Simulated scan of single mutants.
Amino acid sequence: MSFYVELVISILLVVGGVFLLIGSIGLARLPDIFTRLHGPTKATTLGITGVLLASLVYQSINQGSFSVSELLITLFLLITAPVAANMIAKTALHRENPAIPRTSGQSLLTKIRNRESALETTDKD
């Protein structure tokens, strides 16, 4: 394997590992469920994409043909992570989990919980 291929694989692994670490720290340290969603859905998805792309490059070079399985796994993760985050956020709203007081848009949480649309609130004013 050439030096440049190893360099690309190493860079993808390091970048992916850094994003995985940042996402994991965010999941552990952020204060409420609404902010904790950013760690696993944004940073760790990008991190695992870097690791899978490094695996794709390595397997493609080793096998001598394009490796499709890593690409399919990456696409599946990029499609399902935002959907899962949306479902978790909707569940948190339904269960009326409180947001921290510093969170901006607190009035939007009550509107969403009461199933009010933007048009209904402007008609009441």
Rank of each mutant, 00 (worst) to 15 (best):
S55K: 01
V5C: 03
T41V: 11
E96Y: 06
G17V: 09
L72A: 15
T49H: 00
I22A: 12
F3H: 03
N114E: 15
D32C: 03
T103L: 11
I112N: 09
L13M: 15
L75A: 12
T121M: 08
Q106F: 07
L93T: 01
F19S: 03
V8T: 14
Q59D: 10
S69I: 11
F34C: 02
G17Q: 07
T45V: 15
A43F: 14
I25L: 15
G26Y: 03
P82N: 08
G64P: 01
L108H: 10
E6M: 11
I79S: 05
V5S: 04
I112S: 12
K111Y: 05
R95Y: 12
N86P: 00
I33Q: 02
E116R: 13
D125V: 14
Q63K: 13
L109V: 14
T122G: 01
T45C: 07
V5W: 05
I25H: 06
V68N: 09
G64T: 08
S117Y: 09
I22Y: 06
L52K: 02
F34H: 05
T121D: 11
F76L: 12
L108T: 10
P101D: 08
E96F: 05
I61D: 02
A54R: 00
G39E: 08
D123E: 15
L78Y: 02
K90M: 13
P101Y: 04
P101L: 04
T41R: 00
P31L: 13
T91L: 15
K111S: 09
L13I: 07
I25S: 04
A81E: 02
L7W: 06
V14Q: 03
P101T: 05
T49W: 00
E96N: 12
P31F: 13
R36N: 04
G64H: 07
I22S: 07
T45N: 08
R95D: 13
S104P: 01
R115C: 09
I88Y: 09
P98L: 12
E116M: 14
R102V: 11
S10R: 13
L53D: 00
M1Y: 11
L12V: 00
E116P: 02
L20D: 03
L108Y: 09
D123I: 15
I73T: 08
L37A: 12
R36S: 04
D32Y: 03
S69P: 00
V51Y: 04
